[in-house]
């Protein structure tokens, strides 16, 4: 069978059409594949970056805690010791018979000041490193903290805990973060909320720690706070702490006051 030139040309053109269409299909397929790959790579990069940021944050928090500990130790061991020596010296002065009344008064006054300073150093070093938290756990530490604030302010604290015992212990990282968050929220409420009552509920279910912190104060707009470049440091601090321990925070504005709902997942109770 002999084909004419025109048959060859038609066949050739048809083949070219086929190749062009195949090439276009290939372009679509390959571009989509490349695009998916690019998205995947970007996602992976994002995950790595987030993980890196989390680690960085965790390290900075750790450094912060180490620094607090060092400061607490220095205060207790150095300043505390010096104050004790001072107190002893002052006590010897008190025992000595001094005729001048003004000196007597001064020595007694010094004694009071030294006692007050010793108390203050103890209190500060205790605040810097929550010993109760380390030794007895979250519930005791929170109760102690609330009790201390209640003594010095007119705010009424109500603390409830469910599915969790006084002896329950969690990872030190979780305990410390939760405690610091409660400290931050309480300080904020004391400073800004004008609240008369603060409720704290701690619940532990399915390896998730739920925390509800509510006050009956004036409330606030989170958007306004975050928009202010000088404000919202406390909230950002809380968010940073939560990001390290797989936690999320929801800030709600009920009719009165503010309500913070915190959820920390993948949280295991230690025996």
């Amino acid at each position: 069978m002999k084909f004419s030139v025109e048959t060859y040309l038609i066949l050739g053109t048809s083949m070219l059409v086929f190749f062009i269409l195949s090439f276009i299909v290939f372009v679509v397929y390959y571009q989509r594949k490349q695009f998916r790959l690019e998205i995947k790579q970007n996602e992976e990069k994002q995950v790595i970056e987030l993980e890196f940021q989390r680690k960085l944050l965790e390290n900075s928090m750790e450094v912060q805690e180490i620094e607090r500990r060092r400061l607490a130790k220095d205060l207790h061991d150095e300043v505390g010791a010096l104050l004790s020596v001072l107190k002893m010296g002052n006590n010897q002065l008190v025992k000595k018979e001094v005729e001048d009344e003004s000196i007597k008064k001064l020595v007694n006054n010094n004694k009071e000041l030294i006692d007050e300073s010793i108390g203050l150093v103890r209190s500060i070093s205790k605040d810097l490193v929550p010993q109760t938290l380390e030794n007895f756990g979250l519930i005791h530490a929170i109760e102690e903290f609330f009790h201390k604030i209640e003594k010095n302010s007119s705010i009424e604290f109500k603390f409830l805990y469910k599915n969790i015992s006084e002896k329950s212990r969690f990872a030190p990282k979780v305990e410390l973060s939760v405690f610091r968050i409660i400290q931050e929220l309480s300080n904020n409420a004391l400073k800004h909320s004008e609240a008369s009552k603060i409720d704290l509920i701690l619940n532990f279910e399915n390896n998730t720690l739920f925390l509800i912190f509510a006050d009956n104060g004036v409330g606030f707009s989170i958007e306004n706070v975050l928009r202010n470049p000088n404000g919202g440091l406390g909230i950002r601090n809380i968010e940073s702490r939560l990001s390290i321990i797989n936690g999320v925070i929801k800030i709600l504005n009920p009719e009165k006051g503010t309500r913070f709902e915190i959820e920390i997942s993948d949280c295991h109770e230690k025996n």
């Binding site: 025109e6 070219l16 090439f23």
Partner: peptide
């Protein structure tokens, strides 16, 4: 795609224009 299709599908017809 349109331009690619036009250019390459007509190339043989134009190349052998003496026969087409």
């Amino acid at each position: 795609s349109g331009i690619l299709f036009y250019c390459f599908s007509t190339i043989l017809i134009f190349f052998f224009f003496k026969f087409t």
